[in-house]
């Protein structure tokens, strides 16, 4: 009897292989009749692909492309031909700046809001209206006011990751147990020390939950934003490869978006575990 982890791992590999097999079978052209392409689609894809060969690459082809992309990830041959790693770095850089700014704004501000029930009540309607706005809806406004596509993308990351962190921080700070605050009061702990030794540790798990939600949103949004503003980044890469009609590279891009998103989430999850305390 192997451990659950080992068995789950084996099952994962089996599922992956099965998926690749089905994928391969699905894209292998049948000998008798060529795939009936929709004429519109064929035109879009370029006439050349219309024939006996499927436009959809198989897993082997994608893996080969992935290998190529990963073996030289950081080359730079001008605006339309950059390595996958380089594009990812551009995206990660934008997310880091936008998200970092959002943390710097949301956590202290959320702290203040959470400390004051009045501020919480007064600002709540604004936050509730601003929160559900799709980040991309901000894009025209951002482009118009900021007039710089790169900064606009960063702004959009900022604006979409700020709300969950703001709300969670305010909530976490506002619901610190009264008895812990009373402990600090009876020990005559000053406001600053209280903030850092009682309120922050007590609210940290809630704050980190907000940060984790935000990083997920930020990574979702950057891809879409880069498709819109173009230039650099993994979103642009995917869009560019679509224009190049390289579906294999599109799939490679998608894969890497997933992997990076997972890594970002793992980092935050690890941080979250570090500040969580059992009661």
């Amino acid at each position: 009897m192997k451990s659950l982890g080992v068995r789950a791992g084996i099952l994962s590999v089996v599922l992956f292989l099965a998926f690749c097999l089905v994928w391969q079978i699905a894209v292998t052209p049948s000998a008798s009749s060529g795939p009936a392409l929709d004429p519109e689609y064929a035109k879009l894809m370029g006439i050349t692909t219309a024939g006996s060969q499927s436009a959809m690459p198989g897993p082997l082809e994608v893996m080969q492309k992935l290998w190529v992309a990963l073996s030289d990830p950081f080359y730079d041959n001008g605006p339309n031909d950059k390595g996958l790693g380089l594009q990812l770095l551009y995206s990660i850089g934008r997310v880091a700046i936008g998200y970092g700014l959002a943390v710097l704004v949301a956590v202290p501000l959320g702290f203040l809001i959470g400390m004051s029930p009045l501020a919480y009540r007064a600002l709540d309607p604004f936050i509730q209206v601003l929160k559900p706005i799709s980040p991309l809806a901000w894009m025209p406004l951002a482009l118009y006011t900021i007039k710089d596509s790169n900064l606009s993308a960063i702004f959009v990351i900022f604006i979409c990751s700020v709300w969950p962190m703001l709300l969670n921080t305010a909530f976490g700070v506002g619901s610190v147990r009264k008895e812990w605050l009373n402990v600090a009061r009876t020990l005559e702990v000053g406001a600053w020390r209280r903030a850092f030794t009682v309120i922050l540790p007590a609210a940290a798990p809630t704050i980190l939950t907000g940060m984790r939600i935000s990083i997920g949103i930020a990574w979702l949004v950057i891809v879409a934003a880069e498709m819109l503003v173009g230039g650099t980044g993994i979103g642009y890469f995917v869009w560019n490869e679509w224009n190049n009609l390289s579906i294999s590279n599109v799939i490679v891009g998608i894969l890497m978006i997933g992997v990076v998103g997972m890594v970002l989430d793992l980092i935050l999850a690890r941080l979250q575990r570090r500040v969580t305390f059992p009661e």
Binding site: E179, R185, T186, E188, T197, P201, F277
Partner: peptide, 27 residues
């Protein structure tokens, strides 16, 4: 107001759960 001259033992112990035993007393 509260004062260090008057220590309180709370009914619900009110320990800070993210601090160790030593950490709580040292605080």
């Amino acid at each position: 107001g509260p004062s260090l001259d008057r220590a309180v033992i709370f009914q619900g112990h009110a320990l800070l759960p993210w601090r160790s035993v030593l950490g709580n007393v040292a605080y």
